[in-house]
Simulated assay, not measured.
Amino acid sequence: SARVSGHVVAVKVENNQYVQAGTVLVELDPKDYEVAGDRAQAQYADALATAQAARVGVPITSVSTSSQVTTAQAQVENARASRSAAEKEYQAALARIEQAEANNAKAQADLNRYKLLVGKQEISEQQYDQVMTTSKAEAASVAAARAQGQAAAHRVSEAESKLAQAEAELRSARTGPQQVSVTRARASAAEAAAGIAKAALEQAGLNLKYTSIVAPVGGLVGKKTVEVGQNVEPGQALMAIVPLEDVWVTANFKETQLKRMRPGQPVKIHVDAYGRDYDGHVESIAGASGAQFSLLPPENATGNYVKVVQRVAVRIRFERGQDPEHLLRLGMSVVPSVLTN
């Protein structure tokens, strides 16, 4: 029978032809299965490349994650140091503003006093000009100190922002183990996909191989129903092969004849068709009578019992090498004689 569906393009044997095991009997059109095999090969190559890339990505992700954590920790420490320095600078700027404002207050007070004195001509104009210049310088120093204070405050804000960013990057870097686990899971999934693609490729190869239907055993071809141009389906019977190398007889002996019959006893088998005797031996005795193995075994439901001698099947195996010309055929009538003594 066929194992795959297809269109029959060649039938290599005829009825009553003897074939050896492995002989090609029927060929199906392989084109569809060749295309399927090429597609499966390409899909397997793609899946294999993806799996290899995923495997390579696992150690890269591990190393990158470790490096990112180290770098992020260093950036956090640097950001904290920068913020501390900026805060100290800001405190120093505040102190300078306070000092400048104090100096400016003194200079403005001196200017007011000197202004009264110069009006009374108790001091010279030159002394007044010097005091005025000093007051202006101190006022400018206050403005400069305040500007420096604002700049220092801005640098503190920048340092705090950089510190917050560095801490966020550190938290992100510490999720590295989870990232590595995800990468490994992806690699495992890619390897599983490659395994599926490989199995599909192997199945495609088997299907292509099944387009050549070969004889499972040696024997004579019979009941050939397949012809060129026919479409066949899996499991559809195409022909029968009758094996002639391993031949046996099923003899239905009466149960009263089995008293001294045992497996292994020699048997003489007379074949009516050729009028000659063959040697054989009892191979086995059935586990039940033929009536019990029948489609509708008898049932004694009425209580009326009539004793009927039962028949039991005995398998008798021909000794090998007695039929080199393969003359024996399935269904021939024989008379077996079991030598029980």
Rank of each mutant, 00 (worst) to 15 (best):
S1R: 11
R3P: 05
R3G: 04
R3M: 07
V4I: 11
V8E: 04
V11S: 09
V11A: 05
E14D: 13
V19W: 00
K31F: 06
K31A: 15
A36I: 06
Q41H: 10
Q41K: 12
Q41V: 00
Q43H: 03
A45H: 03
D46E: 12
A49H: 05
T50D: 07
T50L: 01
A51H: 03
A54M: 02
A54D: 09
G57S: 14
V58N: 04
V63L: 09
T65C: 08
T65Y: 04
Q68F: 00
T71S: 14
T71R: 11
Q75D: 15
Q75C: 02
A79E: 09
S82I: 02
S82G: 11
A85I: 07
E87N: 11
E87S: 13
E87D: 13
Q91W: 04
A92D: 15
A102D: 09
K106D: 14
Q108D: 07
D110C: 03
L111E: 07
K115W: 01
V118T: 07
G119W: 06
Q121L: 05
E125K: 12
Q126H: 11
Y128M: 15
D129N: 15
Q130G: 06
M132V: 04
K136Q: 15
S141Q: 14
A143G: 02
A151Q: 13
K162I: 00
L163N: 15
A164C: 05
R171E: 15
A173H: 08
T175Q: 14
Q178A: 12
Q179R: 15
S181Q: 14
V182M: 03
V182F: 00
R184D: 05
A187S: 14
A189L: 11
A194S: 12
I196A: 12
I196C: 00
A197V: 02
A200D: 13
E202P: 02
Q203M: 08
T211S: 06
S212M: 11
V214D: 10
V217L: 10
G218R: 02
G219L: 08
G219Q: 10
V221I: 15
E227V: 14
G229Q: 10
E233C: 00
P234D: 09
I241K: 01
V249M: 00
F253R: 08
T256L: 03
L258S: 04
M261K: 03
P266A: 10
K268D: 13
A273S: 15
Y274S: 07
G275K: 15
Y278R: 07
S284G: 09
A288D: 03
A288S: 14
Q292H: 06
S294Q: 10
L296I: 12
L296M: 07
P298S: 12
T302V: 11
K307Y: 04
V309F: 01
A313L: 05
R315Q: 08
R320N: 08
L328T: 03
R329F: 01
R329H: 12
S337E: 14
V338P: 03
T340L: 04
